[in-house]
Design a protein around this nucleic acid. Sequence first.
DNA 1: CGAATTAATATGTACTACAAATAAATTAAT
DNA 2: ATTAATTTATTTGTAGTACATATTAATTCG
Lengths: 237, 237
Amino acid sequence: MQKELTLAEQIERKILKYISEKGYQLGDALPKENELAEILGVSRVVLREALSRLRILGFIETKRKRGTVLTSPNIFYGFKTILSSGTLDKDSLKDLYEVRLMLEIGMADFLFLHKEERYLNDLQRIIEEENMTADSEQLTKLDIRFHSTLYKMSGNKSLYAFQNLLNTLFATYAPRRKDWKVKQIISHESLLEILKCGTADAFRTAMRLHLNTRFENMGTLFPEKAVKAMEEEEEEA
Amino acid sequence: MQKELTLAEQIERKILKYISEKGYQLGDALPKENELAEILGVSRVVLREALSRLRILGFIETKRKRGTVLTSPNIFYGFKTILSSGTLDKDSLKDLYEVRLMLEIGMADFLFLHKEERYLNDLQRIIEEENMTADSEQLTKLDIRFHSTLYKMSGNKSLYAFQNLLNTLFATYAPRRKDWKVKQIISHESLLEILKCGTADAFRTAMRLHLNTRFENMGTLFPEKAVKAMEEEEEEA
DNA sequence: CGAATTAATATGTACTACAAATAAATTAAT
DNA sequence: ATTAATTTATTTGTAGTACATATTAATTCG
């Protein structure tokens, strides 16, 4: 365990503390760099490093002359950087792929909770488009749109943002097999039908079957994941 | 849309590009700051800002004299900072709470996929401890341990790390009601029984019932979430 | 009164110097 | 000769200063 935080890291926290103590609200402007550096008792270089770190987390935005203003921290700010860096290892990639499957199956209750006409109409329209084309690429796009709409319908903004990230990720990293459409057990149409007049429980079961190709795909997309011992991370409790 | 990235941000990406182009592996050491600054054609100040940002994302670790070494980017590095900053808005908090429920219900298939004796034994032991105490605080701890074990059993390391973060988050932000244990429909014992000789589908249904108190809690923990329009984020596709 | 120009100001970048830590090398001691 | 202690060299960490650049605010001119 490395206990010694670098000064910039300490200042990063100090700034957050300073913000909450002073009762700053979103949109408020922080003191200018020179002042803040003096207030916190560090050089401007260190302060700027700390600010830079806060910026990547979405805590602040800075503009010339205008200064530093507080923004709502986007949970997926850094996430995005990592995903798009291409340095993600296979294991993490598979982990995320699995998580998405879990979410799509597990979101059923929230779909029924936030069910609205407009979403159902959107889904209906996508299905109609699907029935009008045979182009594989087009069908893939529509498939993504269908599931994307479900995420939106869940009423969970963070989840929707997360899903968008994963979409771009797996579009490049985990291309589909050509026969995915044929082998699907449950169609989008059936899913919509259940959404309209079924139950959350039924939807979960149906969605699990609908995703069967994804489950099967995993073996080929992410071969023999090394099952490393997770026991070593027991200290946190 | 602000197109103008600051130099440090550009350098941040350049470094990532440099790493992948040079074929650096995890554990490898990057050129020292002075060299890297010269290679990329910027001052050391800017380079250090970029490195600092990469460090918060878990891409690198630096030590005096030893230099900068590549590490596996932890997806939740920045995540953690945000969660522990206390600046998370209510909406995001509720979002995360919901996501956790989705995951617990949706992870069923993976539990059955990675089912092992030792995990089942762990769960059994927790249940036995539960039956031996009446202390509310102790029961809460055991409950967390039970679900935590399930996450571990899912075989998804990232998910397990995520869950750990959320645990600490909701321990402080979303305290339980006192009657949670009494109102539970499905017990841990029943869940374990299904895990032993049931199906994933049955487990999902059972888990949904088991979590009924959580679903009910949400109304009081996170009152009337503002349903903001998510339509404005349509540009990404 | 409005448009164009100028001035003021805060962030962005660079350079230099030195402090602090630590790995490597060297010396001293058993 | 091997180990322990000490010195040295190197690299990150921090500070200060100076200037570039962009943008808001003020001022001037038509």
